[in-house]
């Protein structure tokens, strides 16, 4: 029987796209056999993905926390049903941990506000309270190792808080991100909330850093990349969260509401009250 090779595509704005440049790079398996061609996205693709994220962002932020929780849980269900396929390109352990992490953040979706928000004592006759709001569009640069777990660990806190995401997958091992896109497409997550692109980081790093519409960056970066990101982000006063390349993605320390806080903006309200 003739083998049909797959054309992997990026997942942007709820659609499967090739790079606007038309460029691809061959992907091989461990023994060096050709598997498929992976799109090499460009800064133009980043900008298009940001437009898609902007379009989807408002609607996603307006969903009730309870609904976001349901959708994230559904995402875990969808990965579960393709666990074997995903394990074949990552590892069973990584897939199990990814599913656990999705369920973990699904739980936080309607609870982080109670932890991060507060009622503040003030000396005047005001009811003073703080609530969190999503920052907007979050740019994500995934790690080279743990191509699924690392990527999803950076995505989940951002979308749990109601942000939308443009994520650049691992360059060496992009296929799990391609599969993740296919899983996202059949989950209930609205198209455009998570946008996954593949390609060379060097082509797109500066655009991630300087694009003014991206309000925060979560990146796994060495010292040079981190400096480039922080300098580029300075003009647009963008929040930058850097993880070192040696991060242990399986560690339980990634399951915390404080990583959700990184992608929220605190809003404090002074509400006048009688006497």
């Amino acid at each position: 029987m003739l083998k049909i090779t797959k054309t992997p595509k990026c997942y942007v704005g709820g659609a499967f796209i090739r790079s606007e440049s038309g460029r691809v790079a061959p992907l091989t398996d461990n023994s060096g056999n050709f598997l498929c061609n992976i799109p090499l996205c460009t800064r133009k693709d980043v900008r298009n993905a940001v437009e898609a994220a902007a379009k989807a962002g408002a609607g996603w932020a307006k969903r009730t926390p309870y609904n976001r929780a349901q959708i994230l849980y559904r995402l875990a269900e969808m990965l579960e049903s393709r666990a074997t396929e995903m394990a074949a390109v990552t590892s069973t352990r990584e897939v199990r941990s990814t599913i656990d992490r999705m369920v973990h953040y699904a739980g936080w979706a309607d609870k982080y506000e109670q932890v991060l928000g507060s009622v503040n004592p003030v000396a005047t006759s005001h009811f003073n309270f703080t609530v969190t709001e999503p920052v907007g569009i979050v740019g994500i640069l995934a790690p080279e190792d743990a191509p699924l777990l690392g990527l999803i660990t950076l995505i989940l806190p951002a979308i749990t808080a109601g942000n939308s995401v443009v994520a650049l997958a691992s360059r060496e091992c992009p296929y799990p991100a391609i599969l993740l896109g296919e899983i996202l497409a059949v989950s209930d997550l609205p198209g455009g909330v998570v946008n996954l692109i593949t390609g060379d980081r060097a082509d797109m790093l500066a655009t991630f850093a300087t694009h003014e519409h991206i309000r925060a960056i979560a990146a796994v970066a060495d010292k040079a990349d981190a400096t480039a990101l922080q300098q580029g982000a300075a003009d647009s006063v963008k929040r930058v969260v850097i993880h070192p390349p040696a991060t242990d993605w399986f560690s339980g320390k990634h399951e915390t509401p404080y990583s959700i806080r990184d992608f929220t903006e605190a809003k404090t309200i002074w509400h006048p009250i009688g006497a």
Binding site: R47, A54, E212, H213, S236
Partner: peptide
């Protein structure tokens, strides 16, 4: 500017 602008600019 060399940087892509946000709509609110």
């Amino acid at each position: 500017t060399g940087a892509y602008q946000a709509p609110w600019a």
